[in-house]
Design a protein around this nucleic acid. Sequence first.
DNA 1: AATGAGGCCAACCGCCTCGTC
DNA 2: CGACGAGGCGGTTGGCCTCAT
Length: 264
Amino acid sequence: MGRPPCCDKLGVKKGPWTPEEDITLVSYIQEHGPGNWRAVPTITGLMRCSKSCRLRWTNYLRPGIKRGDFTDQEEKLIIHLQALLGNRWAAIASYLPERTDNDIKNYWNTHLKKKLKRTQTGVTIDDTPTSRSQQPSKGQWERRLQTDINTAKRALYEAIAIDIPNSPPSILPYPQLPPPSTTYASSTENIARLLEGWMGGSGKQDGASTSSSEARTEPEPEPSETSMLQEGPAGPLSLLEWLFDESECEGLLDMKLDTGDELF
DNA sequence: AATGAGGCCAACCGCCTCGTC
DNA sequence: CGACGAGGCGGTTGGCCTCAT
């Protein structure tokens, strides 16, 4: 509070990123790795604030990002996780490693919210703990959390059981992030694709839009959502294991109790 | 063809959390 | 232990695009 924003310096550029800026940022990250964002503008000479650099990387340039339409399974997963976690997009995004929290948030706000409102007659999406301003009062928070967890567990179980009939949900591995060893190579691919889009495209907009539309038609085979969930070494914790772990719920409740909130 | 409305999404803003001193 | 700063997160906005009229 009272702390000046990081981006109020004179000469800090705002607005859409140019291809040159993207390349500069990716080059820096290839060399130094993501992190120490404060140093990025200084070292690279980018006239961007550190936050802007980080955001550009995490939401757009980071390798392994899947763009374009969300699959049915992704949609279901988002809906269930939103019911469970509320608008904690970063947490939700951790279960969809190929999607960014910004993407999920946008997709939720522009598509899923409306879709759910249409389909859920009588029960609106506003009944879930969403924004801070919409958060129920403290006691209600506890009750809704428990209700949401139970509902989400059941619904998610059903959703996954339908989509992956041969895979017992209990053995679903936690979706894996791309291995670090491929990170920078992949980001080079990202940039190459971006440049293709910029050079071949009409140049009507910034790189973001051009490449995102390109990504939609990209012929490169994408792993299906089921394979995304099934393949690779099992992660530290399966989604369902986490969901069905009662101690986790108790932990959450304990955390709330620690803050002095009344339970009921 | 012009234009207004609504949709979409990248990027920004401001608050919060956590680590460091 | 408190102050400070960096990074993270969620909400919001601005501008482009598409579609209907």
